[in-house]
């Protein structure tokens, strides 16, 4: 059970980082398509965060407090850097969920797989918008 708490906590940290990052990303996007995509993604990450907070509370697991701010890996100054960060964030969220798969079973594992898959699909959508080729990777969720 501790292992599960630990992995759920890591997935939660990835989701919280994503919510923060989309706040920064959104500022640098202006086309309707990009903005709609970013809003939907942020909303999805909020839902996953709420799910994880609820689940961890059921398990009486304590989550590490989310940091007040994040050090971004590079400065986000324009659409190109915003899209680059969006791709990186979604890949990171998929990586945050993958270790949940072996420590869960049945429906709970399916929920984790759905979260990982949705992040991987968003990473592919961002790659297409950023015209990054190829738009897919062989092992979504596996650390680089």
């Amino acid at each position: 059970m501790t292992k599960m708490n630990e992995q759920l906590g890591a997935a939660l940290a990835a989701e919280e980082a994503a919510i923060y990052a989309y706040g920064v990303i959104g500022v640098h996007l202006d086309s309707d398509g990009d903005v709609t995509e970013a809003r939907a993604a942020e909303q999805a990450h909020r839902q996953k965060r709420d799910y994880l907070v609820g689940r961890m509370s059921q398990l009486k697991a304590s989550a590490a407090p989310s940091p007040a701010g994040y050090q971004l890996p590079y400065e986000v100054t324009d659409r190109a850097t915003a899209l680059k960060l969006a791709i990186q964030i979604e890949d990171g969220v998929a990586q945050g969920w993958r270790p949940v798969l072996p420590v869960t079973e049945g429906a709970e594992r399916s929920t984790a797989l759905a979260a990982m898959t949705e992040a991987a699909v968003r990473a592919t959508r961002w790659r297409r918008l950023a015209e990054v080729a190829p738009a897919t990777i062989a092992w979504p969720g596996r650390p680089d």
């Binding site: 798969l101 072996p102 738009a135 969720g141």
Partner: peptide, 28 residues
């Protein structure tokens, strides 16, 4: 997805990544 749900612990991640990759292909 069905295979991941019932996969042994040591294969859940591998099968999950394959499921996610197939979903990204459909998206692409």
């Amino acid at each position: 997805v069905a295979a991941c749900k019932v996969a042994a612990t040591d294969r859940a991640g591998l099968v999950g990544s394959i499921a996610a990759c197939r979903a990204t292909h459909a998206e692409a």
